[in-house]
Simulated scan of single mutants.
Amino acid sequence: APGVTEAELVATAAAAEAFSTHPIAQSVRAYGDAMANGERPGGDTMMNGERPAANVAPLAERVRDVREVSGQGVEAVVDGRGVLVGNGKLMAAHGVPFQATDAAGTVLYVAADGAFLGTIVIADTIKPTAARAIADLHAAGVKKTVMLTGDRTDVAASVAARLGIDEVHAELLPQDKVAEVEKLLAATERDTRGKGKLAFVGDGINDAPVLTRADIGIAMGAMGSDAAIEAADIVLMNDNPDDIAKAIDVARRTMRIVWQNIIFALGIKFAVLVLAAFGIANMWMAVFADVGVAVIAILNAMRAMNVSRYEKR
């Protein structure tokens, strides 16, 4: 908007997003902190005239009445002004005329007191290991990978094509994600005759209902919201998507060891019982069926501690 500098626009949005745990909010705050320190993201130094006027008042005094609108953005009162930060749906809901953009990335529109201030575009950065993670999941036996996102369709399709994701559903609200997961659960039940499982990976507060509904919920712990972490069955603390395939590999190896111990222990004990019924088994056989089987099972279980080959991948 005329008269609004980039630094002021970002500072307003960062203040409104101050108490949100959403990854987009964290990006906006990091961007605002960099500009407040005279650094433009990317390493360039800003001119003094580009910096917003310093406001040393605590955020708790400057920002109040914060409300996150699911699937739309954030509403807040910042320095006495009603601020909106979110997508076009949020602007339309409040009757704010805005200039739509088709820039690639996640688009945030910023308004204050009903006046449109400007647009912030956050480009999605694909993790270096993401493409390998999808390939490893397919190699591990995952039949289909699906992306459920609230981002725009063109952005989601571009990312999915680069990563090799099989199916994309974009521009979804949290309840839409739950509905899509219900459909996927039904399809999984039908196609695998009840033997398949559906896993969902998420990090935002809006992903919590889906993480709970899926057979297996996996949360990204370092960047994930508390709600997502609480709802998940598995938490990846290093936020590396490639660890999902590693977790599947480790879990399968662990289950093989468990079944080996169960079959071995029960097999030996039943064999000794049969021999004892025919008067063939002696005391030493009984000792082996009890203590010996336990020692062998423990030694076999210790193989699960050998994780070096997973760490080197």
Rank of each mutant, 00 (worst) to 15 (best):
Glu167Asp: 14
Ala156Trp: 09
Ile122Asn: 09
Ala100Leu: 07
Ile134Leu: 10
Ala100Tyr: 07
Arg162Ile: 03
Val142Gln: 10
Arg162Met: 04
Asp102Ser: 13
Thr149Asp: 08
Ala161Met: 13
Val96Thr: 09
Val96Trp: 07
Val121Leu: 06
Gly95Val: 06
Ala115Gln: 15
Thr106Pro: 08
His169Pro: 06
His138Pro: 04
Gly95Ala: 12
Gly118Thr: 09
Asp102Val: 08
Val96Glu: 06
Thr129His: 02
Ala170Gln: 07
Gly141Leu: 11
Ala130Thr: 00
Val142Ile: 13
His169Arg: 15
Val155Gln: 12
Leu163Phe: 02
Ala170Ser: 12
Val142Tyr: 03
Glu171Asn: 12
Ala139Ser: 10
Thr145Ala: 10
Phe116Cys: 02
Pro128Asn: 03
Asp166Asn: 13
Val146Lys: 03
Asp136Leu: 02
Ile165Ser: 01
Ala130Glu: 00
Ala104Val: 15
Pro97Cys: 11
Pro128Lys: 00
Ala161Asn: 13
Ala112Lys: 05
Thr145Gln: 05
Lys127Thr: 01
Leu163Val: 07
Val146Ile: 15
Gly105Trp: 06
Gly141Val: 07
Ala139Asn: 09
Val168Glu: 13
Arg152Pro: 02
Val155Tyr: 04
Gly150Val: 02
Gly114Pro: 06
Val107Ala: 07
Gly105Gln: 05
Ala161Gly: 15
Lys144His: 12
Gly141Thr: 11
Gly141Ile: 11
Ala103Ile: 14
Lys143Tyr: 12
Pro97Ser: 13
His94Arg: 14
Thr129Glu: 10
Ile122Lys: 05
Ala104Ser: 15
Met147Leu: 14
His169Tyr: 14
Arg162Gln: 14
Thr129Ala: 05
Asp113Trp: 05
Ala160Gln: 02
Ala111Ile: 04
Ile122Ala: 11
Thr153Asn: 14
Ala133Val: 03
Ala111Thr: 01
Ala111Phe: 04
Arg132Ile: 02
Leu108Ile: 11
Ser158Thr: 15
Asp136Trp: 00
Thr145Pro: 08
Thr125Ile: 11
Pro97Val: 10
Val96Tyr: 07
His169Met: 13
Met147Pro: 01
Ile126Phe: 02
Thr145Ser: 14
Ala131Gln: 08
Arg152Leu: 06
Ala157Phe: 06
Val146Gln: 05
Tyr109Gln: 08
Gly164Phe: 04
Val107Lys: 03
Arg132Ala: 06
Gly150Arg: 01
Ala103Arg: 15
Ala160Thr: 02
Asp102Leu: 10
Thr119Tyr: 04
Lys143Asn: 12
Gly95Ser: 12
Asp136Met: 04
Ala115Leu: 09
Ala93Ile: 01
Val121Glu: 05
Ala100His: 12
Ala123Ser: 15
Gly141Phe: 12
Val142Met: 07
Ile122Gly: 04
Lys144Ala: 11
Leu163Ala: 02
Phe116Glu: 01
Thr101Gly: 09
Arg162Phe: 00
Ala140Pro: 08
Ala139Gln: 11
Gly164Ile: 10
Val110Met: 08
Thr119Leu: 06
Pro128Met: 05
Leu117Met: 14
Leu148Glu: 03
Leu137Cys: 08
Leu148Met: 04
Ser158Lys: 15
